[in-house]
Design a protein around this nucleic acid. Structure first.
Lengths: 200, 200
DNA sequence: GGGATTTGCCTACAACCTTTAGGCAAACGT
DNA sequence: ACGTTTGCCTAAAGGTTGTAGGCAAATCCC
């Protein structure tokens, strides 16, 4: 009985590739076993269960994304850095939709704390230091930036901008322009008179 | 054999409630049948299959969200309208996470064109008319606004802002402030010298 | 090299979800 | 009242997840 040379790492990589090809929720253990030319039960020696596999894919994707972000940011600052980071995100999501979807799955606190997510958060914060925004505004800006990137990329990936003009690339470029402008002219926080009330 | 009074509409509503309670991908036909006190096969007289059910949940959620958005916008303009629309979104997502997740599922072109999604898009555009931004910038602004709302809400829902200060409500309020400021001071498009190049 | 142990993949099986086919009885039209 | 439609049923097949136990290849140790 020839051995297939399975390891958790290889399964994670194959699983991630599978997710990119057929979608994260179609990346089942069954499909992964088929792809590896192996019986399903054999996988359970290497990953605890399907949830475990998905978590590993999430962690892999976070690593890869953090790596690309770091490369993109290297030696850049200000607007260049912003565009590079944003493009790294978008390009990664488009090249690896399954992996990108995995990055959005909630991790338990413990796992998240050791993931590349924190590395990534640090990078975003470093980027913002080029814009002269101090705490606590910096945190708000980090969250806004993350929201725009994730929001735009995932709407685009879902086909939200497909069937209307102008094409998505133009909006993307313009969005980054506007965002850069906003960060360079970050408005002062004015004490508002009304409560932070929630409708409904 | 007492009849349970199933209809596509009722199944859609129960399915949506189920999705809010246990998550969209745990909202299976089996679970729905159990909840309705009925055998699984009985559901197939009312919905074509599980994909059909999910699509119906998506359409229901889009309707509801568009309705709430319309209510929120009624009689408001400018900053008030922005905050009301944004809060309607966020509140809906928090109160109905399963339904909100459903709104993010891609629909085929035909279905999407007849959904409440277009009504919603029109409202966003109407909101922006209060800000004096002309086409084609208006479209970019619509997409930016949609990205921020969706991005923030889904990051928050995924627990992304849970374990760090300041709390999410503050960032939300501030984000809307900043967004309002941005829309009121929308920067001119400057012809950029460099290509809209994509980093690998 | 040869025997014991560990490791890797296997078969078998049970549980759950999806979907189709066919049946019976309640509701409905006339 | 009778036939038809409708609503829910049982039965069964196929796919995915997960567990238990087995056999053989690889490894370890002399």
């Amino acid at each position: 009985m020839a051995r297939a040379g399975l390891t958790p790492e290889r399964l994670t990589r194959e699983g991630a590739d599978l997710a990119d090809e057929v979608g994260l929720d179609q990346a089942t253990l069954s499909a992964l076993a088929r792809r590896c030319g192996v019986r399903v039960a054999s996988l359970y020696s290497h990953v605890r269960n399907s949830r475990d596999l998905r978590t590993r894919i999430t962690l892999l994707a976070l690593e890869e994304l953090a790596g690309r972000s770091a490369d993109a940011l290297a030696g850049r600052s200000g607007r260049d850095a912003l565009v590079a980071l944003a493009d790294a995100h978008r390009d990664y999501a488009r090249a690896h939709p399954g992996r990108y979807a995995a990055t959005q799955r909630p991790l338990d606190t413990e796992t998240a704390a050791h993931s590349a997510g924190v590395r990534h958060a640090r990078m975003t914060r470093a980027l913002l230091r080029g814009y002269d925004i101090e705490e606590p505004e910096q945190t708000h800006a980090v969250r806004l930036l993350g929201s725009v990137l994730h929001g735009y990329v995932s709407l685009e990936l879902g086909g939200g901008f497909d069937h209307s003009a102008p094409d998505s690339q133009q909006s993307w470029t313009r969005t980054l322009d506007v965002l850069d402008h906003l960060l360079r002219n970050w408005p002062d926080a004015v004490p508002t008179s009304h409560e932070p009330t929630s409708h409904e």
